[in-house]
């Protein structure tokens, strides 16, 4: 028989917790809205920039175009940039992305250097004894391109100095409030992509045009030097925005679940408390009745 006092205390503490989770849920809801707005603003540019990069990458003889586009014949190391959050209480968000990253690269035949973006990711990667060469945490809530361009620069430098031969980006893609997908994307060198939408829509002349090489103005080196590194860093930036929106959405859902669970638990404890209280009263009544019975039978 649980003690009524104890149950009452538990109910109170659960209600307190549910207040906290409800507040966090409200905060995350507003944050996810804000992140989504930023995301929708920057997405067109990033998508188009990516398209331009793939167009360039689809050029014949791309291996001689630019060092960042060159696919190396022998690969001896990879770099993986994993984007997580700085804080927990976001359900399985952080563990999911790390587990996804580790699983994706468990069969990777070469040594991997990791770059952790977000404190949670750093901790989890170090705990699983990975080679973390850099970490970027405490990013501002709404980072600008310049806030995070160092990450892209680091990746490019690692690649150009041949310390790594491939660079991957692992992040959580924001699809909607309830759907976020762990994603891996190879950013260096760019993946050759076949069968883009253009080929289908531009049927008759497609073959011819796909083969055609670009005319460059002012000249190839100038323009590629200008856009390839920049657009590559931009992909990192966009991934961070996607990941942040995903994190807020995940936290919102986790907090909603916690609030619901707390409410449910409080209700069932309330029932238990009522029962216990009823039982105490019944017992007291029985005592009194028993006492009265004993007295009357004596007399």
């Amino acid at each position: 028989m649980p003690n009524t006092r104890e149950v009452r205390l538990r109910i109170r503490s659960i209600k307190n917790i549910s207040q906290v989770t409800r507040a966090l849920q409200a905060v995350s809801t507003s944050k996810v809205r804000k992140s989504m707005a930023t995301l929708m603003q920057t997405r067109p540019y990033a998508t188009k920039a990516w398209q331009v990069l793939t167009n360039i990458a689809n050029q014949p003889g791309r291996d001689n175009l630019h060092p960042l586009l060159t696919q190396r014949k022998t690969i001896s190391a990879g770099l993986v940039i994993v984007i997580t959050g700085d804080r927990g209480l976001a359900g399985a968000y952080n563990t999911n992305i790390i587990r996804f990253a580790l699983q994706q690269f468990s069969k990777y035949p070469y040594p991997i250097r990791y770059v952790a973006v977000g404190r949670k990711g750093r901790d989890l990667l170090i705990r699983s004894r990975k080679n973390v060469i850099a970490e970027f945490s405490n990013l501002p809530a709404a980072p600008t391109y310049t806030d995070v361009s160092a990450i892209g620069k680091l990746a490019i430098e690692e690649f150009l100095t041949q310390r790594v031969d491939e660079v991957f980006l692992v992040y959580t893609d924001f699809v909607s409030m309830v759907r976020q997908i762990p994603t891996v994307r190879k950013i260096l060198p760019l993946e050759y992509q076949r069968g883009e939408e253009r080929v289908e829509t531009f049927d008759a002349n497609a073959r011819h045009h796909i083969e055609a090489t670009y005319i460059y103005e002012p000249d190839m080196d100038t323009i590629l030097d200008r856009i390839v590194p920049r657009f590559t860093s931009l992909q990192v930036y966009q991934a961070i925005l996607e990941a942040q929106a995903s994190e807020h959405a995940a936290r919102m859902v986790a907090m909603k679940n916690a609030t619901d669970a707390a409410t449910e638990l409080a209700a069932s404890l309330q029932l238990e408390y009522n029962k216990a209280r009823q039982q105490v009263i019944t017992n007291e009544m029985l005592d009194i009745a028993g006492g009265a019975e004993a007295l009357s039978s004596q007399g």
Partner: peptide, 19 residues
């Protein structure tokens, strides 16, 4: 306003990348 001067692009232009 191309970096090498103004340019007019008509449909079916050859692939071009310019600053």
């Amino acid at each position: 306003p191309g970096s090498e001067g103004e340019m007019g692009i008509l449909p079916n232009h050859a692939p071009l990348l310019s600053t």
